[in-house]
Design a protein around this nucleic acid. Structure first.
Length: 110
DNA sequence: CCCGTGACGACAT
DNA sequence: TATGTCGCCACGG
């Protein structure tokens, strides 16, 4: 696990996000041990488009449950993907976010 | 090599 | 509670 780069670590955790669930950049960053580098997670996501296998970046939102990434996906694609998994999204915001929140440092409870 | 930027977050005011 | 500012680190120009 030490041979992979920070980006790859982010991608790995992102792929572990169960369907119908969402997580935050900070949660992933904290799980990776780089709590203060939440921005790097988002930056990694920007490059996730060329990562294989593809990363479900649409399941990653900010700490407020706001679909900040939606603007990068383009249009309502992100909302469609989330609702397709059962996640209600209104006004770029995940409904019942607290309940749908998936914390890797808790769920993976390593 | 230096500067600016960025899918965030926490703290201070 | 809302707004403003700083920190974090990698990448592009």
């Amino acid at each position: 696990m030490d041979d992979i780069n920070f980006f790859d670590k982010v991608y790995e955790v992102a792929r572990l996000i169960p369907p119908g669930r969402v997580t935050s950049y900070g949660a992933i960053a904290a799980y990776l041990g780089t709590k203060g580098s939440s921005r790097m997670v988002g930056y990694a996501m920007q490059a996730c488009g060329k990562a294989l296998p593809p990363v479900p970046a649409h399941r990653i939102v900010n700490r407020q449950g706001l679909l900040t990434a939606k603007f990068h996906f383009g249009g309502d694609l992100m909302e469609q993907l989330l609702e397709s998994e059962g996640v209600k999204v209104i006004d770029n915001q995940v409904q019942d976010f607290k309940n749908l929140f998936w914390d890797p440092s808790v769920e993976l409870a390593l």
